[in-house]
Simulated scan of single mutants.
Amino acid sequence: MAEAAWLLPDFVAFLEDRGQSTVTIAAALAWVKSREGEVVTTVSPRRVTAVRGFTRHLSGIDPDTEVPPLGLLPYRQRWRQPFLYSDADIAAVMAAAETLGPPPRSATYRTLIGLLAVAGLRVGEAINLDRDDIDWSEGVLRIRESKFGKSRLVPLQPTTINALREFDALRDEVVPQPKDPAFFISRTARRLLYAVASPTFRQLVDAARVGIDAPHPPRLHDLRHTFAIRTLLTWYRTGTNVQAKIPSLSTYLGHREPASTYWYLSAAPELLALAAARREGIGKAARP
């Protein structure tokens, strides 16, 4: 409902700009297209879902209301090459957050981006963090029932904990009584929504001119990919037994099984080359 409450006013404003008083399926599709272009993203079906719930209510008032059918915008997950952020890229995007206005908002996005970069969390996991999910003394995050219903503990470096503590103090000072127990809150003092965070991140990336020549625009989720690939690259470069360490990385990332973590071996050419060279070297050593 929180996401619908954010999306529907924009839809109503879109209808008013068109001078349209009755909701139609064509209008719903035109709204999605006007906000996201020709490409169906993960947010597109959620926009239609919000309109669908709204129109089911309206149809009892206005019989001409058209309710979008289920599956109107089916989204099929397609693999795409992740954008790998450099240290300079991440620093530039975090610096761009300073332009977002009041200190609480800029600090929210600066801290969120920094946490995603150094902990490899899914975006939803970071947004769903409550204040009680941070063990300050042990430096550990508790991720509750994330993807596949799995929960896990994520240890952090002391520098990361210090950054989170500074943000926590600032938020307490500016918003002493938030409306949600969330760690990351919006300007309404409620939990930050992905539907708000994603376009804001896009704005920051554009302002920082990060990935302007990339075949696909950088995404928030690519921070997680970058973390995983950097970890594997470091292991290969330092001669670590990667096969033995993969289960640990899989657990840290919250993957259902290590096989999901091996996907990253094909996500970066350098990593694939290192993995192939390591395998070839082991094969030669094993030959009589």
Rank of each mutant, 00 (worst) to 15 (best):
L193H: 08
L204Q: 06
A195Q: 10
A197K: 01
V196A: 14
P176A: 09
R187M: 14
A169T: 00
P199K: 12
V196E: 14
R171F: 00
R171V: 02
P176T: 08
A189R: 15
K179T: 05
L192A: 07
R187W: 02
P181V: 02
A182Q: 13
R171A: 07
R190C: 10
L192Q: 12
Y194K: 10
A197D: 04
S186M: 07
T188K: 15
A169C: 00
P181D: 03
V196Y: 05
L193D: 11
K179H: 12
I185E: 04
Q203S: 12
S186T: 06
L192S: 06
V175H: 13
V196R: 11
L193M: 14
E173A: 13
E173P: 00
R171G: 02
A189T: 13
S198F: 06
L192P: 06
I185D: 02
Q203A: 13
Q177S: 14
V205C: 06
V175M: 09
A182L: 13
Q203M: 09
V175L: 02
L204E: 07
F201T: 04
S198A: 15
S198G: 00
V205G: 03
A195N: 08
V174R: 10
R190Y: 06
L193W: 03
E173N: 09
S198N: 11
P199Q: 11
R191T: 08
V174D: 00
L193G: 07
V174F: 03
A182E: 07
Q203H: 10
D172N: 13
P176W: 07
A195E: 12
T188Y: 14
P178M: 04
S198P: 00
P181W: 02
L192F: 05
V205S: 09
L204R: 04
D172T: 03
Q203V: 00
R171S: 11
V196P: 01
V205W: 05
S186F: 03
R190N: 14
P178N: 09
A195G: 01
F183C: 14
L204F: 06
P176Q: 14
A189P: 01
V174M: 04
V196N: 08
V205Q: 06
I185H: 04
R171K: 10
S198M: 04
D180H: 14
Q203C: 01
P199V: 07
F201A: 08
L193F: 04
R171D: 01
R187L: 14
S186P: 02
R191K: 15
A195W: 03
A197E: 03
